[in-house]
């Protein structure tokens, strides 16, 4: 009980939830055999490509591997600032 109260006040996470999160991540990485460094590299390149077309908030971009049942998905969350209306502008300029 004292532990519970202490945790409530300290805003401390249960260590079992930490274990679970770490375990899930390590299992996904074991399975697809991709290191966090490689994932980071991919993130940079992805950002480069997407930025050609859309203005994005680079610092809020996140890439994660999620697992549900048997399949693993690469989930990218890329907040958009503004669509670059380049193609439209290109058209109007050429008129």
């Amino acid at each position: 009980m004292l532990d519970k109260l202490r945790k409530m006040f300290d805003d401390e996470v249960d260590s079992k939830d930490l274990a679970k999160e770490r375990l899930k991540l390590v299992l996904i990485h074991d399975k697809i055999n991709i290191s966090p460094e490689l994932l980071e590299e991919m993130k940079e390149e992805l950002l480069e490509v997407v930025s050609k077309y859309i203005e994005v908030e680079a610092n809020r971009l996140s890439i994660d591997l999620n697992q549900d049942d048997q399949s693993i998905a690469l989930v990218a969350n890329i907040p958009v600032k503004e669509l670059r209306r380049r193609s439209l502008e290109d058209v109007s300029e050429s008129d």
Binding site: D3, K4, K7, D14, S15, K16, D17, A19, K20, L23, K24, L27, D69, Q70
Partner: peptide, 18 residues
Amino acid sequence: MVNKGDMMDIEDMIEILA
């Protein structure tokens, strides 16, 4: 320890190992 939140519970482990 499970009740204190300091050990993974059975459901957690079964879910992860499927």
